[in-house]
């Protein structure tokens, strides 16, 4: 039936393996990381550096076992980074350097 269709993993409507999962209806407050990632996503959209659909496409490209394990805004952060690299806003070498300088600052 529907479960045998070649759907993408984010295309979740009616998927059997989630049908018995309970819904956590409790409120979960966003933390500072979540809010900052949300804000950066909005700014990148307003500045035409990344569209909503580019952002979604890179989220959909996350391997399924990671997709299901990562938090909502962790997926956003990964997609933003992926898009900035693929669009040449900054290079992987620059990103590695920025990450390395964090390590340096912590020594």
């Amino acid at each position: 039936m529907k479960d045998e269709l070649p759907r993408a993993m984010h295309d979740m409507g009616g998927v059997s393996k989630f049908m018995c999962d309970p819904v956590d209806t409790e409120p979960h407050a966003l933390n500072d990381f979540d809010k900052e990632v949300d804000a950066i996503r909005q700014l990148l959209g307003m500045k035409k550096l990344m569209s909503v659909d580019e952002m979604r496409r890179a989220i959909e490209a996350i391997p399924e076992e990671q997709y299901l394990r990562m938090s909502y805004y962790q997926k956003w952060m990964r997609s933003i980074t992926d898009n900035m690299l693929s669009k040449g806003i900054f290079t992987e070498a620059e990103l590695r350097e920025a990450l390395a300088s964090q390590d340096g600052a912590k020594l």
């Binding site: 962790q74 980074t81 806003i89």
Partner: peptide, 13 residues
């Protein structure tokens, strides 16, 4: 880790 990515991406942008 995403918190490290955030810090690096923020500083590069």
């Amino acid at each position: 880790p995403s918190d490290r990515l955030l810090e690096a991406v923020r500083s590069l942008l």
